[in-house]
Design a protein around this nucleic acid. Structure first.
Lengths: 186, 186
DNA sequence: CCTATCATGTAATCCGTTACATGATTAT
DNA sequence: ATAATCATGTAACGGATTACATGATAGG
């Protein structure tokens, strides 16, 4: 049995198999697209290779369909469930980074107004999409996905505010105080 | 001359070479750690391999020190500067994803209170660190880094609020409305 | 002097992306 | 029927992380 390192991708596969039970890579792809993929997406090819990797290390079982397409079916093993539990119960995590391509451009001197003009509608759209999902969520959806979605909405709102303030142009607050500030009163 | 694809890593190297002029990989490492690395960090090994890649494609020049350590010195070429400008002037960017390991755990059922207990001090510390940097920033620092830092502060604040509200336990707002809501008045 | 840390790099591994392929459904 | 899209995979490539290594500098 091969030793492998479990990556976030691994836990996504394990977690989805727990939620959905035995699944094909294609089913996993659909699941990712409709849920966790909103804040952590995967290429479809990884949903073929990762379960194979996990199978080689005993975290999931691999079964070939008998009928027609002979697709591959994956399911959690006890070991897989244990690994998932252990991960889930450990509150320690790697520090996340923002890694916003738009921030990178801004950092290196892109024009804030031009950047904002492109970013604002994108974040508006994303925000609207998330809010629609939230408003259409059936009551059966678990807390976890609900909370994650909430964070996504908050983040989009914050990004939107950021770019909107940049677009207003006057980011005086970002410059050190100078004589240009009108003195109130007196 | 080899063709290469320019990645975010490439633009970080090009951008820093523009800001700092001719530099060694180690100097780049220091620059990253103190600036852009706060939201987009790189392994030090990449600051050796990436300039080499860029040199092979003509975006930077590579020079060997004569004296002592014979370190490698890199500098922007006209082609490198042009690529940087083109990138910077194009407001289109790939969509960023949150990719928060903590959100992933939450999504898959980790205990919100336990997660919050670990996340809150981490975000408090990060926030304090960013605010200290902002307050100590010399007036000479350009707008870009200033704005990026501002976004970092906003993001940390938002994450902090998120986890604090989760920790308070009452996330009723996330559940669909039910009879449990006390009817005000009447 | 010896040890720890800084400075400087190379090599191997591996995950993730991209490209390639093809059979099955659905739409026109 | 034919074209388009969905479903289902494999293969190649490359960038990023990790591990390995060693000379210089500073601290005890």
């Amino acid at each position: 049995m091969q030793e492998i390192r479990l990556t976030p991708t691994s836990y996504i596969v394990l977690g989805l198999l727990e939620m959905a039970g035995e699944s094909t890579p294609y089913a996993l792809k659909q699941l990712v697209a409709g849920s966790v993929g909103h804040f952590w997406s995967l290429q479809h090819a990884q949903l073929y290779s990762e379960p194979e990797r996990l199978a080689a290390a005993g975290y999931v079982t691999e079964k070939l369909e008998r009928t027609g397409r002979r697709r591959k079916l994956y399911a959690l093993t006890a070991r897989g469930r244990a690994a998932l539990d252990e991960w889930r119960q450990d509150p320690a995590t790697d520090r996340a980074e923002l890694r916003e391509p738009s921030l990178l451009k801004l950092f290196f001197g892109a024009d804030p107004a031009r950047m904002a003009a492109a970013q604002i509608p994108a974040h508006r759209a994303k925000l609207a999409e998330y809010e629609a999902i939230r408003d259409g969520m059936p009551a059966s959806v678990a807390e976890g996905p609900r909370q994650a979605l909430d964070m996504g909405i908050r983040h989009e709102r914050e990004m939107l505010r950021f770019w909107e303030e940049l677009a207003e142009g006057d980011d005086a607050r970002l410059r050190p105080a100078t004589a240009q500030n009108p003195v109130p009163g007196e």
